[in-house]
């Protein structure tokens, strides 16, 4: 009976032992790249909404402050989506016959909620509190990006843990004074790290060891 494998198969077998290392590295890299990709995190993907609400128009065009609608952001763990009443503050008179806004008026008439599509969804095992971030000088823009340029809302950051830790390790790189907390396109008046370090001591921001402790966010 003839040999199944010719003698050259020995060389291929040896090569494949070494080659397997590279294949494994490639598979690991591919998995990591896929995991971090916008395809997985759904960053930069504008979401369809029941009403095509434009932050670009309301924030960029009209100059409304974020807190006009998201009133609870300074005092609560979550930044509320405004009730329909807040929309009707202006839209009782402006665009009050627009068919695009009919779902808003219907919601106001009937008391039924508008079912917006959630854009930012952290895993349920993460404790996140908006108010403390705002109080300590993290601007809206630092996490949400240039909302004033988003016709439909999208997620600006990956919302993955390494992204959280970027700031928790070096808060001085993003902190800004309270007066500019909702400013879009903020430019620090001077050296950001210097301002950031000053704000860290003024706002009593704790050491990076505390900020990066597991139980700071997973509690």
């Amino acid at each position: 009976m003839a040999q199944i494998f010719p003698k050259s198969a020995n060389a291929i077998a040896r090569m494949s032992v070494y080659g397997a290392i590279f294949v494994l590295i490639f598979v690991g890299w591919a998995f990591d790249a896929l995991n971090r990709s916008a395809y997985n995190t759904r960053a930069f993907m504008a979401r369809e909404q029941p009403i095509p609400f434009s932050h670009a128009h309301h924030v960029g065009g009209l100059g409304l402050d974020c807190r006009y609608c998201h009133t609870s952001v300074e005092s609560s763990s979550f930044a509320n989506v405004p009730p329909t009443k807040t929309c009707m503050n202006c839209h009782s008179q402006i665009w009050s016959t627009s068919p695009m806004l009919e779902p808003v008026r219907a919601s106001f008439r009937t008391g039924q909620s508008i079912r917006w599509t959630r854009v930012h969804d952290l895993p349920d095992f993460v404790y996140f509190n908006h108010s403390i971030h705002v109080a300590k000088g993290v601007g809206c823009e630092s996490c949400h990006g240039r909302v004033d340029k988003m016709p439909l809302m999208w997620q600006h950051a990956s919302l993955q843990m390494d992204w959280c830790l970027d700031c928790h390790r070096n808060p001085e790189k993003v902190l800004r004074p309270q007066a500019f907390i909702t400013t879009m396109g903020y430019q620090p008046a001077g050296d950001q790290e210097e301002i950031g370090r000053r704000l860290m001591s003024e706002n009593h921001i704790q050491d990076a060891r505390v900020l990066t402790s597991c139980s700071t966010c997973h509690r």
């Binding site: 598979v27 591919a30 998995f31 896929l34 763990s77 979550f78 509320n80 989506v81 959630r118 895993p123 349920d124 095992f125």
Partner: peptide, 24 residues
């Protein structure tokens, strides 16, 4: 590719989406 498929197919999101009510 099998490894990638195995690693992702096994991912369940039970911890991400726990049966509890968060705001909204």
């Amino acid at each position: 590719m099998l490894l990638v498929a195995a690693a992702t197919a096994a991912c369940r999101q039970d911890m991400h989406d726990q049966p509890k009510y968060i705001p909204l």
